[in-house]
Simulated assay, not measured.
Amino acid sequence: MQKTENLESGKYYHIYNRGINGENLFKENRNHEYFLMLYTKHIDPIAETLAWCLLKNHFHILVRIKTFEEILESHKEYEIKKIIPIHQSFGNLFNAYTKAINKGYNRHGALFERPFKRKLINNQSYLCSVIKYIHYNPVNHGFCEHPIEYPWSSYLTCVSEKQTKLKREKVISLFENLDNLKSVHNKRENFTLLEEFLNL
């Protein structure tokens, strides 16, 4: 059985999951929008987001879990009623989304595989690789030819100037500057080894 990482404050994690039995998680655009709304409610108070991508039957998210002090700082901004274990915030997100999909599409039972997958990221090179991997997921699955063409990922936010809670400046700095980030994302890459490590 694959070991499940504990989510520790101050550390970076690649979090990902798929629909149970390969079922689609996102059936139409409003599903993506609702998931992101729930994400803001449940995850923004406890984590910084560096990258994300929502595909039909799975998703990828790259986060830095906030320290306890940072979560306390978020307390007023997000009107958190009580501080709960980090993994429970993700559980609450997935449960709330599942309830909405079940109600909206007349289905029952689990929607996501359990437990959700997570991998600790412990160096900058790995961090950059995961960011590019997440942005390239729609390309690898044949939805588009370049990450900029896919609307449900953080790449468009990274290369724009619109206001965002995404840690855009942090992401750009990891690639040195915006031009280099774009240049790196213009090069196709084989992610077979990374996917084997992720057990995908």
Rank of each mutant, 00 (worst) to 15 (best):
V159L: 08
P45T: 05
I46N: 10
L50H: 15
G109T: 07
A110V: 07
H60I: 08
L200E: 12
K66N: 14
E48Y: 14
I20P: 04
L72F: 15
L111C: 04
H14K: 09
S154Q: 04
H135S: 13
L166M: 11
L193R: 12
Y105N: 01
L93M: 09
S173H: 09
L62R: 12
K162C: 06
E149F: 14
F26T: 02
E73T: 00
F143E: 03
Q124M: 08
R64K: 12
V184A: 13
F26K: 01
Y16P: 09
T164E: 12
E5A: 13
Y12G: 10
I15H: 00
L156I: 10
E5M: 07
H185G: 15
E73M: 00
M37C: 08
E176R: 02
N190E: 14
N17L: 04
L193C: 06
V139W: 01
K117A: 00
F68P: 06
K132C: 07
P147E: 00
G91L: 12
H32N: 14
Y97P: 01
P151T: 06
D179E: 10
I101L: 04
F191G: 05
N122F: 00
K56V: 10
N199Y: 11
C158Y: 00
Y150V: 09
N123D: 07
T164L: 07
V139I: 09
A47M: 02
T98P: 07
N180R: 12
A47V: 03
E176D: 07
A47C: 15
Q2C: 01
S74A: 04
